[in-house]
Design a protein around this nucleic acid. Structure first.
Lengths: 333, 333
DNA sequence: CTGTTAGCGCATTCAT
DNA sequence: ATGAATGCGCTAACAG
C-alpha cells in the first residue's frame, strides 16, 4: 500500500511536502503542489490515519454505542449522530450491544482502543460503570436518552416522566377510567419514570393505576396485554412504554377480537413514526431523536475542542405529542 | 493516556514484556506476568491500536457499508456481519450511504484511511467503481446482495430472478390473471431482475405483464399502487419488489377501500419478517440475510488470512418462501 | 524468560 | 517555500 514516502519519491520532494499539500496546501508553491497532487493520483495514495492519529493524537472519529439496533429509535440516533458528525468533519465508529451491559463495556473498550476522540453512549442501564470507564480514560463522553444521577456527565434526553403524565391525562380526558400501563424492564430508568408518571396522573384523579413491568419487546407487550385484557375489569385503554410494546399489545387485542380504537385505546411512547410509515397508527409521544443526536454531538465536540470544560450539562428536550388512529373517546363504539 | 511504557515502568520491566503479556502470555513467567497485569489494572491501561496497527499492519477491523440503514434488511446485514466478525475476533466499522453512490465512495475511503483489514459492501448500484476503488488499494472486499458482472470479486447473493418467477407462479396458481408488478429503481439490478422474473412467469402462461418502476420506498409503492389500482382493468394481485413498496401499496389499497386479501392479494420480496413482528402479514420471499452475512464474512476472512486467493466466488443462497395473510385465491371474497 | 534495537506512517519542530 | 530530524505507541527480530 502506498505511503507518503512513495508519493514523495515519485514527485521528487520530501515527505513533509506531501504532508503539507494534504494539510496546509497554501504553504506549498502552486507548481510543487500540482506535481505532488499528480503523484497522489497516479499512485492512488490514501493517507494512513493510523500514522496520522498516532502523531496528531486525534483520529477525527467519534464513537457511538446504541443498545438495540433493531429498534427504529436507535436507527434515528445513528442517522442523527452520523450526520452531525460528518458536518463537522468527523467519522462515526459505531457499535451495538444487544442490550447487554457487559457487551457495552466491551464495545466501549474497542472504541477506546481505536482512540476515538469522544464517545456518545445510549446506554442499556443508567448505572455509572460505563461512563466511569470512559471518563477514567480521560475521554469525553455524552449520554443519550437516560438521566445519569451518579455521573458528572453531559446528558441529552427528554422528560419522559412528564410525557407519561400527559399521555395518561389525554386518555383520561377521552373519558377512559380503567386504564393500565404496560412498561418495560424495571431495571431501566425510563420504564420506571414512565410508570411513575402514569401512576401520578391516575392518582391525581383518584383512579387506581395498575402497572405491568415486562420488556421493551413486542413479545413482552403481547404477553402483558394478554394478561391485562383478560382480567375481570378489562381496561378500555392502555398506556404502553414503547412502540414495540404497543405493537405486541395490538396483536394481543386482535387475537382477543378487540378492535382498536373501538374496544380499546392505546397510547404509547417512542412510536418514532414507524408503526406504519405513511400513516402512523399509534397516538403517542415521539422524542425528537434527530435533534437529540445533534445536541449530543455538539456537546461532545464542545468537550473535544475544549470549547467547554465545566460540569455535566443536562439538556432536556420537549417531546412531541401526536394524535393518530389508536385512540377514541370512551363509549365511542 | 497510559502507554505501554508507563505500564513497563510501573512494573519495572521492558515495554516488550508488557507486550508479551498481552499477546503471548505463556512466554512470560507467571510472576512477572502477574506483576504486569497488576500494573495494567492499576493504571487502567488500554492498548492503543493505532500503534499496534501501524506495527502489525493489520487492525483486526472489518469495514461494512450498507445503503439504507432505515431498511430492516440492512439492520439484519449489520447484525449478521457484526456477529460473524466478533466470533472471529474482529471489530466492525460501519458506514451507511443513504443510497448515494458518491457517499459510498467517501465511506469506502474513510474505511481505507483507517486501514480496515477488509470490506463488506452492500452497494447502491452494481457498477464497478466501488469495487475497483477498494481492490486498487489491494484490500479484500466482498459484495453482498448484488451480482457484479464487471468485477472479479467475491459475491454473496440470492437468485432474485428465480424467486420472482416463483412468487409470480404462486399468485397465478391461486387463480389470479390480472397481476401487476411494482418494482424499484430501474438503475438497480435487483429491481430489473425481479421485474424480468415476473415478466417471464407471466409470459410463460400467455398473460400480459405490466411492470411499474419506482423506488424502494413506501411512498413510491403508494404512488405506483394508486395508479395501477385505479386503472380500468384493476389487477387482483400485486407482486412488489420490496417490503417497503408492499407497505405503501397496502396503504393505497386501504385508501381505495380494497381489503387485503379479499379484494387484492400482495406478494413481496424482502419482507424480512418485519411488517408485523409477531404475525407477519405479507406472503413472499425472504432472503436468508443472517446466513448471507455469515458467508460474506467468511469469504472476506478467507482472503484476509490468505486461505483463498483465487478468482471471485459467486455464492447464491436459496430464498425462503413464506405464506402469510396477504394472499387469497382469486374470487375468494 | 527478558531486554534492546529499529521501524511501521505521519506531522511537529526546527533549520535552511 | 522546502527539508531533516525526531518521536507518537507498539511489536518483529534479534540478543542474551
Amino acid at each position: 500500500m502506498t505511503t507518503i514516502r512513495d508519493v514523495a519519491n515519485h514527485a521528487s520532494v520530501a515527505p513533509m511536502t506531501v504532508s503539507r499539500v494534504l494539510n496546509q496546501p497554501d504553504s506549498v508553491s502552486p507548481e510543487t503542489r500540482q506535481r505532488v497532487e499528480e503523484s497522489i493520483a497516479a499512485l492512488k495514495y490514501v493517507p494512513n490515519m493510523l500514522g496520522q492519529g498516532l502523531r496528531k493524537k486525534r483520529t477525527m472519529a467519534l464513537g457511538l454505542i446504541v443498545s438495540d439496533i433493531t429498534n427504529p429509535f436507535a436507527i434515528q440516533q445513528i442517522r442523527g449522530v452520523t450526520r452531525a458528525a460528518r458536518d463537522n468533519g468527523y467519522t462515526v465508529i459505531f457499535g451495538h450491544t444487544e442490550s447487554d451491559p457487559e457487551e457495552e463495556l466491551k464495545q466501549l473498550r474497542a472504541l477506546i482502543e481505536r482512540r476515538v476522540d469522544g464517545i456518545i453512549l445510549s446506554p442499556v442501564y443508567n448505572t455509572p460503570e460505563s461512563v466511569n470507564f470512559v471518563q477514567g480514560q480521560k475521554l469525553p463522553v455524552t449520554v443519550l436518552d437516560y438521566p445519569m444521577p451518579e455521573n458528572d456527565v453531559d446528558v441529552v434526553r427528554c422528560d419522559t416522566h412528564l410525557a407519561a403524565r400527559e399521555l395518561t391525562d389525554y386518555v383520561l380526558d377521552l373519558g377512559h377510567r380503567r386504564v393500565a400501563m404496560l412498561s418495560g424492564d424495571l431495571a431501566i430508568v425510563t420504564a420506571r419514570e414512565r410508570a411513575e408518571g402514569f401512576e401520578e396522573a391516575m392518582a391525581a384523579r383518584g383512579y387506581s393505576a395498575p402497572v405491568e413491568y415486562g420488556h421493551f419487546t413486542p413479545e413482552s407487550g403481547y404477553e402483558m396485554a394478554l394478561g391485562v385484557l383478560q382480567s375481570e375489569s378489562r381496561p378500555t385503554a392502555l398506556v404502553t412504554a414503547s412502540n414495540f410494546i404497543a405493537l405486541g399489545a395490538a396483536e394481543a387485542a386482535r387475537e382477543l377480537g378487540l378492535s382498536i380504537p373501538e374496544d380499546l385505546s392505546i397510547v404509547t411512547f417512542d412510536n418514532a413514526r414507524t408503526d406504519t410509515v405513511l400513516d402512523p397508527f399509534f397516538t403517542g409521544v415521539v422524542q425528537p431523536i434527530a435533534e437529540m443526536a445533534t445536541v449530543a454531538t455538539h456537546f461532545l465536540l464542545d468537550r473535544i475542542l475544549q470549547r467547554y470544560g465545566g460540569t455535566g450539562r443536562d439538556e432536556i428536550l420537549p417531546t412531541i405529542f401526536e394524535v393518530h388512529r389508536s385512540t377514541a373517546p370512551y363509549g365511542h363504539s
